[in-house]
């Protein structure tokens, strides 16, 4: 916002970045080095760098990526499919609802916009353990238990309240004058929404998508109940299984953590560019 930067301020900005980066990085780097350790190097720690203060090993990677490939690859594929499709579905339906709540006023008896919004969020309050068993029974009835489709629907629904709330706020932040002029030019309401509001709220859309994606990617307890075999089981179940009778398999958790971060990070790198100014400014001024 300010063109000339104060060197002292710049210094502190970078200092803050470095400090938080190390807060983020220390656990991540520790995970990285643990992924190459034998149990004994974990127990007799702290050991930091493979080849220098301990003898590194690829066994942990080999275990998942070669020995257990059949299971690992299926679960990885399920996770990616379920996370992406459920997030797309969630964002599509969620932004429609959010747009409705942001632009129209609903009134059914005493129920108004804010009540509808609160009803959405209230669906997220019960702890998952209370609802998983009824859900399990319901999915069995519907014959979508242990299918990717079932999980996609479930995650889309679970994340909807968050998507609705977040998107509504982003839409509210966008001046409605642009849509109004589009409507006057003969656009339908849907066209105005798709062509004008959605592009303008790209940063919010991306942020919400990433958030919803991460939730679907990492969800455990619902997946535990709604899946059963490699037909639909997802990665978090594999991760949770590393907490074993023998104590946590730190090396296994580390490998799985790193491989599960990878695809989401790639998506974040691709989408990050859309979380930036310019789009809106250009549109408003143009």
């Amino acid at each position: 916002m300010l063109e000339r930067r104060n060197p002292v301020k710049t210094f502190f900005s970078y200092l803050a970045l470095v400090i938080w980066s190390s807060v983020v990085l220390v656990p991540l780097l520790w995970t990285l080095t643990t992924a190459f350790k034998n149990p004994i190097d974990v127990y007799r720690g702290p050991k930091y760098i493979p080849g220098i203060d301990f003898q590194g090993t690829f066994d942990n990677w080999k275990y998942f990526l070669i020995d257990q490939w059949q299971f690992f690859s299926a679960q990885y594929f399920n996770s990616i499919t379920v996370a992406i499709f459920s997030s797309l579905l969630c964002i599509a339906i969620g932004s429609l609802a959010a747009y409705g709540l942001a632009r129209f006023s609903y009134q059914y008896g005493k129920i108004q916009n804010k009540d509808i919004a609160f009803w959405f969020i209230s669906q997220k309050i019960l702890p998952p353990v209370v609802v998983v068993i009824p859900l399990y029974v319901m999915f069995q009835w519907l014959h979508i238990h242990d299918t990717r489709f079932g999980l996609i629907i479930a995650y889309a629904a679970f994340n909807l309240p968050f998507a609705v709330w977040l998107m509504r706020d982003y839409f509210l932040g966008i001046p409605s004058e642009l849509e109004e002029s589009a409507l006057i030019d003969g656009c339908s309401r849907i066209q105005a929404f798709v062509r004008i509001t959605l592009p303008l709220s790209a940063p919010g859309l991306v942020a919400t998508f990433l958030f919803v994606l991460v939730f679907a990617w990492n969800e455990y307890i619902v997946a535990l109940f709604l899946t059963q075999t490699l037909a639909s089981q997802t990665m978090p179940i594999l991760v949770a299984g590393q907490n074993a009778q023998r104590g946590p398999q730190w090396w296994g958790i580390s490998v799985l953590t790193l491989v599960t971060i990878a695809p989401v990070t790639v998506i974040a790198v691709i989408l990050e560019r859309y979380i930036s100014k310019g789009l809106l400014v250009g549109a408003v001024k143009g």
Binding site: S21, V24, P27, W30, G45, P46, I253, L256, T265
Partner: peptide
Amino acid sequence: LFLIPMMITPVAVAYIMRMVFDFRIGP
């Protein structure tokens, strides 16, 4: 970079934190 912690499944984050908070054999 700052987004990465959110991308890890919660139970794994808890385990990572348990390693980090182990002040005898942790980093």
